[in-house]
Simulated scan of single mutants.
Amino acid sequence: MSAAIEEASEAKQRSNRKSDAERISKREFVMRVGRRAGVPLKITNQVYDAIFDEIKELAGRGVSVTLTGFGKFYPQVHKGHQVRFKKEDDEVRDYAVLKFSATRETNQGLGIPSVSPDAEKRS
């Protein structure tokens, strides 16, 4: 295995361990944003709630929200289906989930090395 692939694999493993071990609550996130912006906690919390309420409302109406230079929030509709392994004729109706797609710049700004398909072929 090439050094680049090994490095990327190790970085991915570290990232996975970090994501399981290092989580941040809404409260801590809002506190950090408020400190960074120099805004009181109460105002920061109101802005946080307003931003995500607006994203959810728009997505609920089928509208995509693009934050230039960051990414896009959008609804993804899933078709209903019959419930499996159920004695009754239960059915899951059509439903939507909120999805997020980060821009290339946002992903590259994370600082986690990735393995290109060309690097994998060379190994």
Rank of each mutant, 00 (worst) to 15 (best):
E91L: 08
G111I: 03
F70D: 10
G71Q: 02
S15P: 13
Y95E: 01
Q46P: 07
V33I: 06
P113H: 10
K99S: 08
L41M: 04
R35Q: 13
G34E: 08
G109Y: 07
N107W: 10
G80K: 01
S15T: 11
L67C: 02
G60H: 09
A102M: 09
T103N: 13
V39S: 10
V63Y: 02
A11T: 00
V30K: 00
E54K: 12
E6A: 15
H78A: 02
E105V: 13
H81M: 15
V77Y: 00
I24H: 02
P40E: 00
R84C: 11
A102E: 07
I55A: 04
G34F: 00
I5K: 14
I55L: 08
P117T: 12
F85T: 06
R61Y: 10
T68A: 14
L58D: 09
I55G: 04
R27N: 06
T68K: 12
V30H: 01
R17C: 11
V39N: 09
R84A: 13
N45F: 02
L98Y: 05
R61G: 13
Q46S: 09
F52C: 04
P113S: 11
R61V: 10
N16T: 12
E88Q: 08
L110I: 10
A96K: 06
Q13G: 11
T103P: 10
V92R: 03
V33L: 05
S116K: 10
T68E: 12
A50F: 04
L41I: 04
A11D: 03
D53E: 11
A4E: 09
L58N: 10
T44F: 01
I55S: 02
A11L: 02
S123G: 13
T44M: 01
K42T: 06
F29P: 08
E54S: 09
